[in-house]
């Protein structure tokens, strides 16, 4: 008998198939979904890296410079390029999903999805510009 068969308790004749682990490899949309989920690892990595940055800043200039030297190694440059790409893709999917969760009404008018997505991108651009300004002016 097929090993995938898992009969329902009390109804042994009912037929049930367990979903295979690699259910997502058949369709491009599912592969894209799994890729999106995996980019969460890069987000977690970025958060950890930020915490490490803070820790070295608190420890002192020597620790910070040591970390900067480490991050200049080809291995870490490669890791961070991949992480940046993955985080940017994750952000793009997050912003595009925002209107599904956020429904805002002003009286009888519902704010269009495009404005919610646009608002996210605008906030991103403003924050990035502010951080860039801090960087160049410091």
């Amino acid at each position: 008998m097929n090993q995938n068969i898992h009969h329902t308790p009390h109804h042994p004749k009912w037929y049930r198939v367990r979903k295979p682990v690699f259910w997502w490899v058949k369709r491009f949309a599912d592969i894209r979904f799994i890729f999106r989920e995996l980019t969460s690892v890069a987000v977690a990595y970025s958060v950890i890296l930020l915490v490490v940055f803070y820790r070295t800043l608190l420890t002192g200039p020597g620790a910070y410079l040591d970390l900067m030297e480490t991050l200049k190694e080809p291995f870490w440059i490669t890791v961070n390029i991949f992480a940046l790409g993955a985080v940017l893709y994750h952000t793009y999917t997050w912003f595009n999903a925002a209107p599904r969760a956020i429904v805002v009404r002003l009286g009888k008018w519902r704010i269009p999805d495009l404005m919610i997505v646009g608002g996210n991108y605008a906030a991103w651009a403003v924050l990035s510009a502010a951080i860039f300004w801090l960087y160049v002016s410091g």
């Binding site: 949309a29 599912d30 979904f33 999903a97 599904r100 969760a101 429904v103």
Partner: peptide, 24 residues
């Protein structure tokens, strides 16, 4: 995990995925 396929196949354009995200 917002796969989104539920909304893709819905014959009545209910958008269950959107409903769940609003619930979250």
């Amino acid at each position: 995990t917002l796969v989104g396929e539920c909304s893709e196949v819905c014959p009545k354009d209910v958008d269950p995925a959107g409903a769940i995200q609003r619930y979250k």
